[in-house]
């Protein structure tokens, strides 16, 4: 109490101190919520993945046992294989189709606004709606196959959705339908941002349209490719709704993906420890993609 410099701040009116703290006070509920419900919960699930939890959480640690189990379960193997197939095709086709559509739309098209609206509307739908539409459209009994046969093409076959080996590709079809317009919009934004002067100069130098795209335009779209990759990869890993609505993980468990695996092991098979371990692996995979991306984004502005 004898130290003047120390008593000085305390002697400031309460109103002042309150005012200084106000911004942080306003931010604090959100920070607290995220701290508990994101990071606290991540820690909790991480802990459970090392415990012998079955129906209910248990705090009894068992080391890496759940992870060892997980990698021996055939359904998990299927889920991971499916995710690799689905993710690769989904990202590749969305990017290729998105780029093609963006280039086609960037040719001073009449009614461009309308066409863009048509390409992008599936993005506004729920994956459940998309799943229902494609589930019946691809159903051999009433959908495409039945229609083609009705039109006279008697030998037409398209029963992938009922075929264990092919069903995963129907999920690619529906997912590409839903998201490719979005990727188109990303690339279109990228195209629109390219400096017209550079292109004009290259054209004057005699570059053909093809080499113009290959050597100048597409390399400049690298950031758009990066963004598209990150967004699509993260969507692929999280995809759950579409699989549930389209195939329900079937036939059998032919279209099981990590997200459906986690759900069924945790909530219907009462293997919470294994479910938690599978969630941790999903998180790690997404983190490996997102963290470097966020890092570079947030650092860049300094």
């Amino acid at each position: 109490m004898t130290d003047i410099s120390r008593t000085e701040p305390a002697s400031r009116p309460f109103g002042d101190r309150f005012r200084d703290a106000l911004p942080k006070l306003v931010l604090s509920p959100s920070v607290a919520m995220v701290a508990i419900f994101v990071y606290g919960f991540i820690a909790f699930t991480l802990y459970l993945s090392f415990s012998d939890s079955r129906v209910l959480p248990s705090y009894n640690l068992v080391g890496w046992k759940n992870y060892e189990f997980l990698f021996r379960i055939r359904a998990w193997d299927t889920a991971v294989t499916n995710l690799v197939i689905f993710g690769t095709l989904y990202i590749a086709i969305c990017c290729a189709l998105g780029l093609l559509l963006a280039i086609l739309l960037d040719q001073k098209i009449r009614a461009e606004g309308f066409i863009r609206t048509v390409y992008l509307y599936p993005m506004a739908l729920s994956f459940i709606v998309t799943g229902v539409a494609w589930k019946w459209f691809l159903d051999p009994g009433i959908g495409l196959e039945a229609v083609m046969r009705g039109w006279g093409w008697e030998s037409f076959r398209f029963d992938w959705i009922k075929d264990s080996d092919m069903a995963i590709y129907t999920i690619v079809i529906a997912a590409v339908w839903q998201t490719s317009g979005f990727v188109m919009a990303m690339f279109l934004a990228g195209l629109r941002g390219i400096d017209g002067e550079i292109l004009k100069a290259a054209q004057i130098d005699g570059a053909s349209t093809f080499s113009l795209y290959r050597r100048i335009v597409i390399p400049q779209l690298r950031p758009a490719f990066m963004s598209a990759f990150v967004v699509l990869a993260h969507m692929a890993i999280k995809s759950y709704d579409l699989v549930v609505a389209l195939t329900g993980g079937g036939p059998g468990n032919a279209t099981e993906v990590p997200a459906t695996f986690m759900y069924s092991y945790t909530f219907t098979r009462n293997q919470m420890g294994i479910g938690a371990a599978s969630a941790v692996i999903m998180l790690m995979t997404i983190a490996a993609i997102i963290v470097p991306y966020l890092w570079s984004e947030l650092r860049e502005k300094k």
């Binding site: 960037d106 001073k108 461009e112 606004g113 863009r116 993005m123 739908l125 729920s126 994956f127 998309t130 839903q178 998201t179 979005f182 919009a185 990303m186 279109l188 934004a189 990228g190 195209l191 629109r192 941002g193 390219i194 400096d195 017209g196 292109l199 004009k200 054209q203 349209t209 113009l212 795209y213 335009v217 400049q220 779209l221 690298r222 950031p223 758009a224 990066m226 963004s227 990150v230 967004v231 993260h234 969507m235 999280k238 709704d241 991306y293 966020l294 984004e297």
Partner: peptide
């Protein structure tokens, strides 16, 4: 659906997909 509007999709300049471009290939 849950997607992510992460990115600065608009990095290569400030392209706006809703605005047509004056010149280009």
């Amino acid at each position: 659906m849950a997607t992510a509007p992460t990115s600065r999709f608009i990095t290569a300049g400030t392209g706006d997909p809703t605005q047509p471009r004056a010149k280009g290939p």
